[in-house]
């Protein structure tokens, strides 16, 4: 660390990672916009903090990880976005629809824990890597191993996400920021469970992020015949009508 040692209390308080009770010290220059204004408002850096480890806890794959992270990835045009141990294959068509650049995305498979740690450390230190999404291997990481990831993240200048199972939420973690995500039919719930330098009052308050419009407005197929035309639809957006009959046919939906 090439930072000079602080000589007095004021200098010490300039550090962003010192807990200051309910008052947070904001460092605006070290965050990247998450693409979700309501989430930005809850984060110390008004965005994803750089050179820090961000832990995201999820019950299983598909809990809104790409909804949460895609805006930041989309806004970054330089540097590589690297995925370590993704739980399934990223679908090129879905990524292109989301505006992601496939040439920037690299996938690394490191199923063994030692290999995962070595890969994480190497990639986090590489200047070419701007964003790293790492899914912890089958064998869970312990505190010391996550600490290694934290130290490697501090040496880099990108944004580093570590995705772990939500059963590890109660366990202590040295990550700078911890979130838990859960997808629901109407919204994506994001819970900040830990944030260095952040206000305690913001912790564990669920944030509801909206889902993409194209996912909404469908009635279950089984119920289509039960709804007369004059009953307003319960979902935020009405499904498409075709010649007076409610339908979820995709070929009709494409024209929206």
């Amino acid at each position: 660390m090439n930072q000079q040692l602080p000589t007095n209390l004021e200098q010490l308080l300039q550090r962003g990672d010192i807990w200051r009770g309910t008052k947070a010290f904001f460092q605006d220059n070290n965050g990247q916009d998450t693409g979700h204004p309501e989430l930005n408002n809850c984060l110390v850096h008004h965005g994803w903090p750089r050179a820090c480890l961000i832990e995201i806890n999820q019950q299983e794959l598909g809990q809104g990880e790409w909804l949460l992270l895609a805006p930041a990835l989309r806004n970054n045009t330089e540097g590589l976005q690297i995925l370590i141990n993704p739980p399934a294959l990223p679908f090129a068509q879905g990524f292109l629809q989301a505006g992601l650049n496939l040439d920037q995305i690299l996938i690394v498979n490191a199923p063994a824990k030692n290999d995962f740690l070595a890969a994480f450390v190497e990639i986090a230190r590489a200047k070419a890597c701007s964003h790293l999404l790492a899914w912890q291997p089958q064998q869970a990481l312990n505190y010391t191993e996550i600490r290694k990831c934290v130290l490697a993240s501090n040496e880099g200048s990108g944004i580093y996400w570590l995705l772990r199972h939500s059963r590890t939420t109660p366990q202590s973690s040295p990550a700078h920021l911890r979130l838990r995500t859960q997808i629901y039919a109407e919204y994506l719930e994001v819970l900040i469970t830990k944030q260095k330098g952040g206000e305690q009052s913001l912790l564990n308050k669920p944030l509801e992020l909206s889902l993409p419009r194209e996912w909404m407005g469908y009635l279950p197929h089984a119920d289509l015949d039960n709804y007369p035309d004059n009953i307003p639809h319960i979902h935020p957006q009405k499904p498409v009508r075709s010649s007076g009959k409610i339908t979820n046919n995709i070929s009709r939906l494409r024209s929206r």
């Binding site: 294959l89 990223p90 679908f91 629809q97």
Partner: peptide
């Protein structure tokens, strides 16, 4: 481009 496509593929 207009079709519904997921991000993860098995």
């Amino acid at each position: 481009q207009q079709a519904l496509r997921p991000k993860w593929l098995f």
